[in-house]
Simulated scan of single mutants.
Amino acid sequence: MDKNFLGRTGLQVSELCLGTMTFGPGTDEPTAHRMLDTFVEAGGTFVDTADTYSSGRSEEIVGSWLKTKDRDELVIATKVYGEAAPGLPVRGAGRKHVMAGVEASLRRLGTDFIDLYQIHVWDDATPLEETLTTLDALVSSGKVRFIGASNLTGWQFQKAIDLSRHRGLEPYVSLQPLYNLLDRDAELDLIPVSLNEGAGVIAWSPLAGGWLSGKYTKEAGGPPAGSRSNDDDWAAHDNDRTWRVIDTLLAVADETGRTPAQVALRWVMQRPGLTAPIIGVRTPEQLADNLGATGWALDDEQMRRLTEAGEKPLPYPHNILRMPQFVRRG
């Protein structure tokens, strides 16, 4: 598995990131450990979790596995923000909760430091300066190596970077947005900001919750048995654009001799600014399939067809800004 630098940092991570949101109720500890071993044996080094995944159980499972591994060879990312358990209040990204949250994550992970500590979502109740100065202190203390963010708008991400620069604070070095062949809104602002500011992009849900795995077909008329989809999700996706993307995906998969999931992941991996997609697998079989996205590449024509299949009309003001008479760089 190839390695990429995380944005403009000197930190190298594997081109796939193993997501652990299912570890706990969805994937038991022995199975999760086998999957982590398989991922590392394939060259993977980048593992992503969060304090809220399975109410902390995901971090505990990763931590029990870490005890027998060479910690310095791995890049462990986690997140802070939400409720620690169902029914508890959402704590946000204020100093008190972040300071308590990092200690709790370190304890569950059984490690002295976190490689990438991410704010899970924008906190509209806490001054941004409070969050950033707290994160800066965590880097200075050695408990955190780098900081990042997830689920922000373009202006929020840019404001955080600008404030850090103005105050001389540790900046966000990465962004974790929703991004795949069907969910392309990150291309409007988030990815351009990341490219301009040198932040790595770690895409979550690169298979669109299973829609790009090849098991969804228009002819079925509804979500397949055992999938994460429901009637509302089906209704939201049942449109000409979705089926055009899936038809193109299946055609390219047939041409390349790869599975639809491997092609969908490969498209994300080859997009500008992408550091790594997060593969959120529940079973060893899904992991084995996803690992097949490495070691090969889509050609330019295949990338063009896949990209064009999912394009849709630009919203204002992007439609104005990209008119030929206004574009100066081509």
Rank of each mutant, 00 (worst) to 15 (best):
M1Q: 10
D2E: 15
D2V: 07
C17S: 12
L18T: 03
F39L: 08
E41L: 10
G43M: 01
T49E: 06
A50I: 08
G56F: 04
E59G: 07
S64P: 03
D70W: 00
L74A: 08
V75Y: 02
Y81A: 09
E83T: 13
A84P: 06
P89I: 12
A93E: 01
R95A: 12
K96C: 01
M99W: 01
A104D: 14
S105N: 11
L106P: 05
L106A: 10
R107M: 05
R107I: 00
L109I: 04
T111L: 13
T111Q: 05
L116A: 04
I119N: 03
V121Q: 15
D123F: 06
L128K: 07
D136Q: 11
V139T: 11
V139L: 09
G142D: 12
V144D: 08
R145E: 03
F146E: 06
G148M: 13
N151M: 08
L152D: 01
T153C: 01
W155S: 15
S164R: 04
H166A: 14
P177F: 07
L181K: 07
L181T: 08
R184E: 09
P192M: 11
L195W: 06
L195F: 03
L195C: 07
A199N: 12
V201C: 05
A203M: 06
W204N: 05
A208N: 13
A208G: 08
L212S: 04
K215M: 10
T217V: 08
G226R: 12
D231I: 10
D233R: 14
H237L: 13
D238R: 07
W243G: 14
I246A: 02
T248W: 00
E255Q: 15
T256W: 00
R258Q: 13
P260W: 05
V263C: 01
A264H: 03
A264F: 02
V268Q: 08
G273E: 14
L274F: 12
V281S: 11
L287I: 09
L287A: 12
A288W: 00
T294Y: 00
W296I: 12
A297M: 11
D299H: 09
D300H: 10
E301M: 01
Q302K: 04
E311S: 14
L314H: 07
H318I: 06
P324Y: 10
F326E: 07
R328L: 11
